[in-house]
């Protein structure tokens, strides 16, 4: 019994099909609890007022935008090394979800920045690398669409994914490399110093869990669609030959 068994499309369809209803339910539950708790049952921040509530969308979305690219990177590497088709398709399926998360993070960040910093956008290192990550998502999706042969498309997009991971890493750690920027440091870090008061922290954790589950659910759903699309294409090709 090895983990690579799940790379078999048939096995993947079985397992993901059985898991999906549970994932959907759990996602809805955590997202609703987290967002309602955050939006309606927490007080105002001492300096930001109620603008602080954007944190419940912005932080999880930005986190998942970067993590989605990291997941695509892992899937691409598995494809390059082991040639599992499900892996390549999972990377392809995750891209539009990551793109949406990036868009949510950019939009909520701008809405928060206008009253707090005094500007919608600034060419700060972290903001800039996040914008480049957004453009990489667009390029990645376009490259998949542009190449007809599935295996070549998977190879080339994998290489693009490796290059783009530079900006995924930078948008997370740019604050540490170039400390003279506008964006604040990490709100959630593993060091002991407590930055975010518990009142905001616990609903935020629930929201993050909700976004992670949402991402996993959508990736499963979309990968299943991609696998079915492949099967359809194979059937059509066989029809034409017959």
């Amino acid at each position: 019994m090895s983990i690579w068994e799940y790379a078999n499309p048939k096995r993947f369809m079985q397992v993901s099909g059985a898991l999906l209803p549970w994932l959907v339910g759990l996602t809805l539950l955590t997202l609703i609890v987290g967002l309602v708790w955050g939006f309606f049952f927490t007080g105002d921040d001492y300096r930001q007022g109620s603008t602080v509530k954007i944190i419940y969308l912005h932080v999880p979305a930005a986190l998942m935008a970067i993590n989605a690219w990291m997941m695509m990177l892992a899937a691409s590497l598995i494809w390059l090394v082991r040639r599992h088709h499900v892996s390549a398709l999972a990377a392809r399926a995750a891209a539009p979800i990551g793109l949406t998360m990036t868009l949510i993070a950019l939009a909520t960040g701008a809405i928060w920045g206008q009253p707090m910093w005094g500007t919608w956008w600034a060419w700060d290192p972290r903001l800039t690398s996040f914008l480049i990550l957004f453009l990489f998502y667009l390029g990645y999706i376009a490259l998949w669409e542009a190449i007809e042969t599935p295996d070549t498309a998977a190879d080339l997009t994998s290489v693009l994914c490796i290059v783009g991971s530079v900006f995924a890493v930078l948008s997370r750690y740019a604050v540490n490399f170039w400390n003279q920027g506008l964006h604040q440091g990490a709100s959630l870090s593993l060091d002991k110093e407590e930055n975010v008061s518990d009142v905001f922290f616990f609903p935020l954790l629930v929201c993050i869990a909700g976004f992670v589950l949402l991402f996993v659910t959508l990736v499963f759903l979309r990968t299943r669609t991609e696998i079915r699309q492949r099967r359809l294409d194979a059937l059509e090709a066989r029809e034409r030959l017959a």
């Binding site: 007080g43 921040d45 300096r47 930001q48 910093w117 600034a122 506008l182 709100s187 975010v196």
Partner: peptide, 18 residues
Amino acid sequence: SEILAKHDETYMPKEVVD
């Protein structure tokens, strides 16, 4: 000619600070 505020990463409820 233009001034931006820099926010640090501390978040605290108003009641607690009061």
